[in-house]
């Protein structure tokens, strides 16, 4: 089972990030990691949170465009130096659409990435001995 990433459309206007964090605070949603992709007019905030389903519903209730995206989260056995081993393991078949850091904690370093065919990629990573995070 893939990890659910919360994706939120954000217009580049004042106060929207505050609004978003307020929703999280009010619903006790913890942020584990995030990354922001932006164009000149808007951004997409991608987050790994403690309860993505509830976060999505609560955001929609206050007129955010939010959706859930399947992503792969994987531990890096030898820290960030082992990034190449992950990309080697997946990119021969598919392209990684985007990637960001999930954890920098020593010996627990992990990344998140989006790729087509998540299930297949997860299976092949597991077969190669990688640890997935769900």
């Amino acid at each position: 089972m893939a990890l659910k990433q919360l994706s939120v459309f954000l217009e580049n206007r004042e106060g929207r990030l505050e609004d978003l964090f307020q929703v999280f605070e009010a619903n006790n949603i913890e942020i584990h990691s995030f990354s922001l992709a932006e164009s000149s007019e808007y951004g997409i905030l991608r987050l790994i949170v403690s309860n993505p389903e509830i976060a999505k519903e609560e955001l929609r209730a206050v007129d955010f465009s939010a959706s859930l995206t399947d992503v792969v989260a994987v531990r890096l056995p030898g820290g960030f130096d082992s990034l190449k081993s992950v990309t080697d393991a997946v990119t021969s078949e598919y392209n990684i659409e985007y990637m960001y850091v999930l954890s920098t904690e020593k010996d627990k370093q992990a990344i998140v990435f989006k790729i087509k065919n998540v299930e297949e990629v997860e299976k092949s990573l597991e077969e190669k001995g990688f640890t997935l995070i769900h």
Binding site: S7, S39, I44, R46, S65, S67, Y98
Partner: peptide, 12 residues
């Protein structure tokens, strides 16, 4: 709209 929201800038 949620119906045509994508999490990729390129798609938007």
């Amino acid at each position: 709209d949620e119906k045509f929201f994508s999490d990729e800038i390129r798609e938007l």
